[in-house]
Design a protein around this nucleic acid. Structure first.
Lengths: 124, 124
DNA sequence: ATAGAGTAGTATCAAATTGTGACCAACGCT
DNA sequence: AGCGTTGGTCACAATTTGATACTACTCTAT
């Protein structure tokens, strides 16, 4: 058996791929993946997320969190203390997305050397 | 066992996550995932890709293909016929990325109803 | 003979997205 | 009294992406 024999599950083959696109466009943006990974071990507060995700601006963190909340992938819990406290947490469906996302992360981690070498060759 | 008991492989825990970020930022952009899926069954020509990936501009297709080629994930083969013909194809390492990518696609496909319902509730 | 389409792009400029501070209000600490 | 912390929002600047036109060559239809 060669690599090209591997069969991948085809998500209903072309049939109505617009909704899938809408979902993937949310996940495959600049920050969503990192928010997911940051939330994998339990609830995290707004500013803790900001510190954990290097380079994200407050604006984009707010916007991306709202979108993920709208999709039901994370939940937002406000504790009306002073100063206010807001916890973000993966929902059940959000956790089910964690498996494929972590698979991607793991792939990226195991293949970084190969990719960096490919880049060096290409740039040369 | 509950969902929170699931353990995910942690990609070398925080250690040097900048290279992983660089790789993920390439994969998790607006178009790379779709190019990957479009190439999953074998080589595809430039304009065929453009027709297959709805909404992509010629410019972004060129740019994204070049970046994926630089990372060694796809190969570019020019046949100097007239009119010219250029085949894009997944490399071995590119095909190894196909598994996690298809897992994401499959997840998006099986969860679109839930997400659309969540959106309706949020918007209401 | 000539107009139109297809090939794989590049160049230029407009539009959309993202980043950068500033600001808010209420409180604790020194 | 002044600074820091909380979780944001707002206006504006910088970056990224999209739209359109152009290339040069050939094949097909009128």
């Amino acid at each position: 058996m060669t690599l090209s024999d591997i069969e991948f599950p085809t998500p209903s083959e072309n049939a109505d791929c617009r909704p899938v696109r809408e979902i993937l466009d949310r996940i495959a943006d600049k920050w969503s993946l990192y928010i997911f990974v940051a939330l994998k071990d339990g609830p995290v507060r707004f500013n803790a997320l900001r510190r954990q995700i290097d380079g994200i601006s407050q604006r984009m963190l707010t916007i991306t969190l709202r979108q993920l909340e709208r999709d039901g992938l994370i939940s937002r819990t406000l504790f009306p203390t002073i100063p206010p406290r807001v916890d973000y947490e993966l929902t059940a469906i959000g956790r089910s997305l964690l498996a494929p996302v972590m698979a991607l992360m793991t792939w990226a981690d195991s293949n970084r050397d190969v990719i960096e070498e490919a880049r060096r060759q290409y740039d040369h």
